[in-house]
């Protein structure tokens, strides 16, 4: 099987998985006890308005028709309107998702940059103090709940030293006319530092441990010895040969992990009051604002599925040995 065929097959699989998740969501929300319409249409509405809404969503139709309508809606990413704010769920997602991505990608970038680098060095210098310490730190980083570390950071740097904001993404009262205002961005970065650092610290452990293990495995292979015999510079062997080979599994694992990490943003956003999609989803769930809950959840699931997909494709492009069969 060629690469093109693989991509096609994997794309089909992607669509099927998305469909399955959407269907599961449909069943989940319909199987809840009580009147199913309350999950789609705000129960506080009454009379004619309610009837109209029910009709506009096709909720008076038989289940299979409803299902078809639902799938069409999902395919166009329209999940109805928020009970709470009456805004279209799509707009809510468009507002909150970029904020979540800003936080998540910043944290992820630094976590993987540092984690992978430290992992390379730890693997290269096996049995050194450096290795032992970094593995220990990685274990610690993964064991302390990130939201708790966030609380501690807020306590020390926010409440006590007063060098970071206690909550939010922007200070009140900043005037800006466009998104490209420097002051606005500096202010956002100031708010971003603490949550990104805490999240980054938590995320760092995984690539670090993975990279170290992968390095140990690669370093035991024969070609590394030959690289040394070839008189290549130490730095070149370490990065260009050992790390390049060891990186393959990390790229895949990293892409997959990013997908799941976006869903994990729920906690860090809550602690730091970061107005992202995770916090929005929790709020929606707590307020029983089902359209928003459903829509944001679907976006989280889609992120996971898409990144799994990208990871699979990336592997084929990075490793010349991959054959598609």
């Amino acid at each position: 099987m060629g690469r093109a065929q693989f991509v096609v097959r994997r794309t089909l699989q992607l669509i099927v998985t998305l469909w399955a998740v959407a269907t599961a969501l449909f069943l989940l929300f319909r199987s809840m006890p009580g009147d199913p319409t309350t999950y789609i249409v705000d129960p506080s509405l009454s009379g004619e308005a309610r009837e109209r809404l029910i009709e506009s969503y096709g909720l008076n139709e038989p289940l299979h028709v409803q299902y078809m309508i639902y799938i069409q809606d999902v395919a166009t990413l329209s999940f109805g309107q928020s009970f709470h704010s009456n805004r279209a769920v799509r707009d809510i997602i468009a507002l909150y998702l970029p904020r979540t991505l800003l936080l998540m990608l910043t944290a992820f970038f630094f976590a993987y940059l540092i984690g992978i680098t430290v992992g390379i060095i730890a693997g290269w210098r096996r049995n050194s103090d450096f290795e032992r310490r970094s593995v220990f730190i990685a274990l610690i980083a993964r064991s302390f709940p990130d939201f708790w570390v966030g609380l501690i950071v807020l306590w020390i740097f926010g409440a006590w030293l007063d060098v970071i904001p206690m909550s939010g993404m922007r200070s009140g009262g900043i005037q800006y006319d466009s998104y490209w205002n420097v002051e606005l961005w500096l202010d956002t970065i100031w708010h971003l530092i603490a949550p990104a650092a805490v999240l980054g610290f938590y995320l760092m452990g995984y690539p670090l441990l993975l990279m170290r293990n992968s390095m140990l495995e690669v370093l035991s292979q024969d070609f590394i010895e030959v690289c040394r015999a070839r008189g290549l510079k130490e730095r070149s062997i370490m990065f260009k040969h050992a790390a390049r080979n060891a990186l393959l599994p990390i790229v895949t694992a990293g892409a997959v992990a990013l997908g799941y990490a976006v869903g994990g943003s729920v906690l860090i956003e809550t602690v730091f009051g970061w107005p992202g999609m995770g916090r929005e989803m929790v709020n929606a769930v707590l307020r029983r604002d089902y359209p928003v809950a459903q829509g944001t959840f679907f976006i989280f699931a889609m992120t996971v599925i898409l990144l799994n997909f990208i990871a699979d494709l990336a592997y084929g492009f990075l490793d010349p040995r991959v054959t598609y069969d």
Partner: peptide, 18 residues
Amino acid sequence: DFMYGLPLLPTVILLVAL
């Protein structure tokens, strides 16, 4: 494979909330 498409925390939140 399908299960792998579900993000852990959001799914648990949703299930527990419902």
